[in-house]
Simulated assay, not measured.
Amino acid sequence: MPRSRPRALRAEHPIHPVWGPVPPTRIHGLSAGTSLAIHRAERRGGSWFVHPGATDQALRRYRAFLSPPGNRPLYPAEAACSCGCCSFDDVRHARDVLEEILRDLPPRARGELGRALRPLDAEFLRRTLPDPFTHRRAWRTEFWWYRRLARASASG
């Protein structure tokens, strides 16, 4: 019986990628391995706001909020709508998504994303003001980015 060529054997068993029909795009500022780990965590994420592409969107929003030059204070604003698209208008929600995906990553990818977030967090702390009335708020959060002064919502 003649021997089958390796190419013929591989053609019989096509390899299906783990990410689906379209390979994930690389997240700006992160390695390809970390981007792939983030994409995998997003696909298996059990949260309403963590979906494929959410980390890239949140990271871009966080960088855009901190991008205006100067030393003037920045005030996060609440999103007008709480749907998945509009919720990223609130930079604090974008930071929530980044924190959630950070918890779901393997150690090496978590370290790289954490190193990318560290200077952004330092800039956020430098450019925003502490909220002196945090202790009086009806809701309390463990996240430090909600303890900064924010612009009042138009609806409230």
Rank of each mutant, 00 (worst) to 15 (best):
C83F: 06
E142Q: 15
A80R: 15
R103E: 07
F143H: 15
P119G: 06
Y62E: 08
R151K: 14
A138P: 09
R5H: 13
H13M: 12
A77M: 13
E100M: 07
L120S: 15
A11W: 12
P69H: 09
L9E: 10
E100H: 09
L59A: 01
F133T: 12
L30V: 06
E99S: 13
F49E: 10
G46M: 11
A32P: 03
F88D: 00
C86T: 06
A94H: 00
R151F: 02
W145C: 01
T25G: 14
T128Y: 13
H135T: 04
G53V: 09
Y146R: 04
D96C: 09
H16T: 13
P2Q: 11
E112Q: 04
T128R: 07
S35E: 01
T25K: 15
I27Y: 01
T25A: 13
D104T: 10
Y75H: 03
L120I: 03
S47Q: 15
H13C: 13
L98E: 00
R108P: 02
H13N: 10
E142G: 15
G53A: 01
R110P: 00
G111I: 03
G114V: 02
A64R: 02
I38H: 11
F88A: 00
P106M: 04
P68C: 05
E112I: 04
A116T: 11
L98S: 00
S67F: 15
P17L: 12
A94L: 00
H13G: 09
R151Y: 07
V97C: 01
E112F: 08
V91F: 05
P21W: 07
S67L: 13
L125P: 03
F124P: 00
R136H: 09
